[in-house]
Design a binder for these strands. Sequence first.
DNA 1: TCCCGAAGTTCGATTTAAATG
DNA 2: GCATTTAAATCGAACTTCGGG
Lengths: 361, 361
Amino acid sequence: MQSKDEKLAMKAATITIRDVAKDSGFSSTTVSIVLNNAPLARYIPAVTKKRIEQSAKKLGYRPNLFARSLRSKRSHTVGVMVFDMTDPYCTLVLRGIENTLYQSSYLPILTDVHNERSRFERYLEMLLDRRVEALIVLANWLFVDIDVLADLEKSSIPTAMIGRDLRTDSVSSVMVDNELGAHAALEHLYSLGHRKIAFIRGPKTLADSAPRWKGIRSFAKSSGLEMDSRLIVDLPESRDPISSFEAGYKLTEDLLRQKRPFTALVAFDDMTAFGAIRALAKSGLRVPEHCSVIGFDDIAASSLYTPSLTTVRQPMEVMGTMAVSLIVDGINAVQEKREFSAVHRKVAPELAVRESTRSLF
Amino acid sequence: MQSKDEKLAMKAATITIRDVAKDSGFSSTTVSIVLNNAPLARYIPAVTKKRIEQSAKKLGYRPNLFARSLRSKRSHTVGVMVFDMTDPYCTLVLRGIENTLYQSSYLPILTDVHNERSRFERYLEMLLDRRVEALIVLANWLFVDIDVLADLEKSSIPTAMIGRDLRTDSVSSVMVDNELGAHAALEHLYSLGHRKIAFIRGPKTLADSAPRWKGIRSFAKSSGLEMDSRLIVDLPESRDPISSFEAGYKLTEDLLRQKRPFTALVAFDDMTAFGAIRALAKSGLRVPEHCSVIGFDDIAASSLYTPSLTTVRQPMEVMGTMAVSLIVDGINAVQEKREFSAVHRKVAPELAVRESTRSLF
DNA sequence: TCCCGAAGTTCGATTTAAATG
DNA sequence: GCATTTAAATCGAACTTCGGG
């Protein structure tokens, strides 16, 4: 009894292909062929097509995507896994992802892993259950975790990772060239006449730390710059990106207490730079008058800071776009049963010179 | 020929309920009942259950959600529409949404409308086609747009809007109490001894502007504070939240040029405050030594700024959580065929006193 | 009536195979 | 054989109905 009423109500609310068939006077097969412009549509006369299209529009027909996906095994959906949404680094990358996906008519399912293994696994399962056609992993601030990669590999759908370079041929990656960026940062300070330079390096376990330091070393070597090991400190390991602000503050205080003069400071990233600037200010040191500071990333806040922060910009929006185009290629390859192998892209950063560094000349 | 091979390959890759039925020796009906722990499962002996569960686990069975959704008409998915993803205001709200959704096993589909009508409409259509069970709209920095509301209303699924107060009983809303917040901001400055105060108001067309100004007026009236109309300026209308930084900078320069002294400045939001601080610095005025500055929102950058920004905090994560719990209630009501009407929540902001304001006493 | 299990229908669209003139 | 159209099978799970003990 109730079910009869329901059915009527449903019919009123949701128009199926059969309703269009009935209204137009053709079979649902023909309607499907016409509306999807399938190969067979070649044989269908224009009048028929018009009649069907009019009925569809009149009734406001919208195909049921569950039914369609059930048959086609496609979801037109992409899973996006972010390791920490509150990291300011994410925002622009996400916009790049969203924007490019939009153009390809895919929809992103966004998950935030909170840097937790269990969340990662549960989310991965949920996404796979929903048959996302590809995966984009934003591995900002992620510590070495081989297992994560293994989980990803066995998922066997096109996957791109942003922010880590990998040596796999199953997972693509998009990375900034950390070495180049750090090299450019130090070169910038050197060209402004700075010779006594302090360094706050990244946490040892963070993938970005080593290449950035390598870039620093390489410039120092080629220019003959002497580095004072007492002016080199390391960020502690932490799961929380905000903590690099606090650590930057504390480490800068430590540096100042040593009374070894320095005229410039290279921070591991922008957050660390902000912490350093705060510590300098607390000691009555102004940036850039008393000390130049340079960061890395160019998060949104950096250009808003007073002084605005000189930094090495990661082209985040572009990186998001690149990741999407990689996985879209992957999806197409899968669709056409072609082989495809992972691609590893390293993008060049760009020096953003602003107010926090000044020339000594 | 190819299809035969395909079928075999598929069978190997994707295990259906029938495979479990075959393996366990029971019918697919029984398997379904057991694995879903349906009401009828009461009657099924433990041995049978165990056998079926073991088969399912052994084969790695995962139910096909398309098929399930097709029958149940449920997607376990929620659409999230953000008007501008790059607005720093979004991040924490999104985390609140994600986090709460996670606990209810819903997945968010994130869309970024870029403040464009056409994108809004296309995305709304896409989300509805995917049968999202509810909608959360993050209407930060959105200008009055009646049509948007109308579109939302006719979608007839539970909808919550964050950042706008509405007078509808079809769309719920979660808002900060702007009036209270602005009142508290001015009260704070007044209690520190400030009497000559400049104001940068929000754009006239932005919904938040009027109530915030009302809060200012109400405190001024009750305390007898005199306001100098030449120290009151308005942000221009713009689609881009970053622009409030630039406008804040420019307007503060204008204020300073007037040579009418002021010891404190109330900015419409944190971005505006950052712009103001930059302009003050350019004129050699230090914050808070020469001028106190207070913002509104408490975006992530505010506590990282030097000086750290005193501001009125919107409990953004909580607001995200509230929106989710409203729409989850809505979903449950729909499921149980209960009536439900929109709820309008106004949450109290909290004054975050930091370094950018100081006492004159 | 209670317990256990299976056959068959349904959800809505796509596709194959086949039937018309 | 050709243009035009359609009945029937399919995708995978869930639910309704029914039968035997």
